[in-house]
């Protein structure tokens, strides 16, 4: 029973990874450009959770900074692509 939290965290890592695989599949088959960007948005938000899980399992706080920068870059990237699709860039 002592390592129950570790087992639960490992199961969550499997769920998150399965979600990333599904988002990647949509990224590959998505018919139009906008569909791919939606898939990429989902992919990055799920990846932030995976980065934080890795930070928790390896007990290194530096991965949280990586996750924050990843979140900022993904937000700016998605907004930039949206502006590009509208023709405002």
């Amino acid at each position: 029973m002592a390592n129950l939290p570790e087992i639960l965290l490992q199961i969550s890592t499997y769920f998150v990874s399965a979600g990333i695989i599904l988002a990647t599949l949509r990224l590959i088959i998505g018919p139009s450009m906008a569909d791919r960007v939606v898939a990429l948005d989902t992919f990055t938000v799920i990846s932030i959770s995976l980065i934080t899980l890795i930070a928790c399992m390896s007990e290194r706080v530096i991965f949280l900074d990586v996750g924050m920068v990843y979140a900022i870059l993904s937000f700016i990237g998605v907004v930039a692509v949206a502006r590009y699709l509208e023709g405002g860039l």
């Binding site: 639960l8 199961i11 969550s12 998150v16 599904l22």
Partner: peptide, 19 residues
């Protein structure tokens, strides 16, 4: 870890919805 597990199930369902 139980809260994390619930959250990861929701993440999986969201990705399933996107798919």
């Amino acid at each position: 870890s139980i809260i994390t597990l619930i959250g990861s199930i929701f993440l999986f369902l969201g990705a399933l919805g996107v798919f």
